[in-house]
Design a protein around this nucleic acid. Sequence first.
DNA 1: TACATGATGCCCT
DNA 2: GGGCATCATGTAG
Length: 211
Amino acid sequence: MKPLTLSGPLPQKFYNRDPRRVGPELIGKILVRRDGKKLLTARIVEVEAYLGQDDPAAHSAAGRTARNSVLFGPPGRAYVYFIYGNHFCLNVSCLPDGEAGGILFRALEPLSGIEEMAKLRGIRIHGPRDLRNLTSGPGRLAEAFGITRVRDNEKNLTDPASDLYIAGDGSPRPKVISTIRIGITKAADLPLRYLISGNVFVSGPRHLDAR
DNA sequence: TACATGATGCCCT
DNA sequence: GGGCATCATGTAG
């Protein structure tokens, strides 16, 4: 495997923009978890943008509550929520303090710490195909990175001391396409899902024409 | 205090 | 490709 030369955490100003700009630029970046001696890394291959009050599908649509307050806070913070009684999902807040918006992480391509991810997911890896079960899907990737609401919600992902952050690795930005978002019923026609076209680690349709 | 709902994934065919 | 487990949250009462 090609050795990674990771940057530090992406700066706060990276997230201090409209989610529709942040989303596509997050594609190809690296999600990093430092867990004691272990280092988990994976390339971001699929995300979705959720806007503020103008987006009926966003958790922030109905205004600020105790649950979604991170989305209204400063940019670059982790918003972790629990869904369907089983799964955690990871988002990062966007826009200045006071404005709601965020990016949902939907799929990653595992790079390092794969054994640890498999352990956290409670599965075994038999071949390359099994790698997809690690981090393809919002709930899966959260589990593979040990992400929970108690541990990570409101965490500052731009803090160099953070054990969870997003870094660049100097590689060229991949070709990004956008499609409609997945698993929602409101505002379902907006093209706010961003992904690397054809990447096998993407969850759901991997091309523009496949819906 | 009760209840409907959901930005899902697993386990069957 | 479809059924379903499972519970935090918000809202109504």
